[in-house]
Simulated assay, not measured.
Amino acid sequence: MTVLQFSTYDASRVEETWRQFVPSAALQQVDPDDFRFDWFSAEGAGFSLVRYGLRAQVRSVVEPENQLLACSVAGPGAEVWSGRSPMKCGAPWLTDGARMEARWDQAQVSGLIFDRGTAEELARRMCGDDTLRLRVLGGAPDHQAAREHWSRSIDFIAAAMIESADDELILAGVQRQALWLLLTMFPTTFRTALEQDPQSRVAPRLVRKALAYIDENAHLPITVDDIAAAVHISTRGLQYAFRRSLDTTPAQQLRRARLEGARRELLDGTQDTIAAIARRWGFAHPSRFSAAYRDQYGVLPAATARRRE
C-alpha cells in the first residue's frame, strides 16, 4: 500500500495529484490567490482512499472511465451537480461514468475509488452471482443519515489502511468493507442482486448466462428468441428452464431489465421526457410503461424523477 501526504501553495499540483487517482478529473477554474492544498491518500491494489482540503475558488469536473467513484464535497457555499440535478452539499455521491461537477471557495473532499473490474469481481463474490454486471442505478444515497455514516466510515477506513499497511489480509477485509459500504448505501445492481430470491443466484449456468445476456442487451430491440439463440437453446427450452429455476419467464426478466434501465436514467436526472425514456427502453405506450413501473417499484416514474429535482 502507498500513502501520500503533503501540503502546498502550488495550484498546479491539485489537478496533477487528483488525476493520479481519477484520470478524468479536470479543474476548469482555480484562483491562485489565497490558495492552500492539503492532501492525503492511501492506495492499495485496485482501491484508493483520498482526503483533501482545498482553499481556492475552484470549478471541477470528473467523468470516470472504468472506475467506481464515491465522493463528498463539504464546505460553505459548495455546490455539486450532475446534469441539471443538484446533489446535497456534504452528502456522498456515487458515479460509474456519469459526469459530476462541483464548485467551491473552500472545501473538504473525501473519496473512495475502485477499479471497475476489481469492484465487479469482488461484488460477485460477495453476492454469490457470478453473472453480476455492476452498475450504479442512482448517484444519491437512499437514507438521510448518509452524510454522518459516510464521514465515520471514511475515518475508520483511513485509520485501518494506515495501521495495517503491511498486512495484506487485513487490507483485503478493509477493501471489502469499503466496497460493501458503496454498493449498499447507493442504488446499485449489487443491491438488486442481494434482494433477489436466492434461487436465482444458484440457477443453472444456462439460465445465468441468459440473465447476463438480458442485462447487457436490454437497451437493444432483442426478443426472447434472440436470448435463446445467444445461449444455444430453443425458445421453448429457455422458457422451461426459466420456469423451473426462477418461476418466471424470459420475457418477464427482459421487462424487468428494461424497467431497471429506465429507472437508472430517471435517477440520473436526464433532461429527456418520461415518454422518451420509455420508448428508448422498449415501451411504446407511456401509460403501460407507468403501470409496469408502478408494479415494479411501487411509485410512478414521475415520482422517481422528482427525487432528483
Score class of each variant (00 low, 15 high):
residue 78 A to V: 00
residue 188 T to W: 02
residue 231 V to N: 02
residue 141 P to L: 11
residue 233 I to Y: 02
residue 195 E to A: 15
residue 203 A to K: 03
residue 51 R to F: 02
residue 229 A to N: 14
residue 75 G to Q: 02
residue 130 D to R: 12
residue 156 F to K: 05
residue 154 I to N: 01
residue 83 G to C: 09
residue 34 D to I: 07
residue 282 G to I: 01
residue 106 Q to T: 11
residue 246 L to W: 00
residue 265 E to C: 05
residue 115 D to Q: 10
residue 155 D to I: 00
residue 30 V to I: 15
residue 105 D to K: 06
residue 301 P to Y: 04
residue 175 Q to M: 03
residue 9 Y to H: 14
residue 166 D to M: 07
residue 211 L to N: 04
residue 186 F to Y: 10
residue 77 G to A: 05
residue 27 L to R: 10
residue 308 R to A: 08
residue 169 L to T: 13
residue 183 L to W: 03
residue 269 G to V: 05
residue 236 R to S: 14
residue 90 G to S: 11
residue 16 E to T: 14
residue 260 E to H: 03
residue 186 F to L: 13
residue 134 L to M: 07
residue 170 I to N: 03
residue 58 V to S: 05
residue 268 D to H: 07
residue 255 R to Y: 00
residue 50 V to M: 08
residue 118 T to G: 08
residue 80 V to T: 15
residue 44 G to I: 06
residue 96 D to M: 07
residue 105 D to F: 01
residue 260 E to L: 15
residue 121 E to V: 10
residue 92 P to E: 13
residue 168 E to G: 14
residue 288 R to C: 13
residue 117 G to D: 09
residue 53 G to P: 01
residue 46 G to D: 12
residue 108 Q to S: 13
residue 192 T to H: 02
residue 215 D to S: 11
residue 130 D to C: 07
residue 249 T to K: 02
residue 13 R to W: 07
residue 248 T to V: 04
residue 18 W to Q: 11
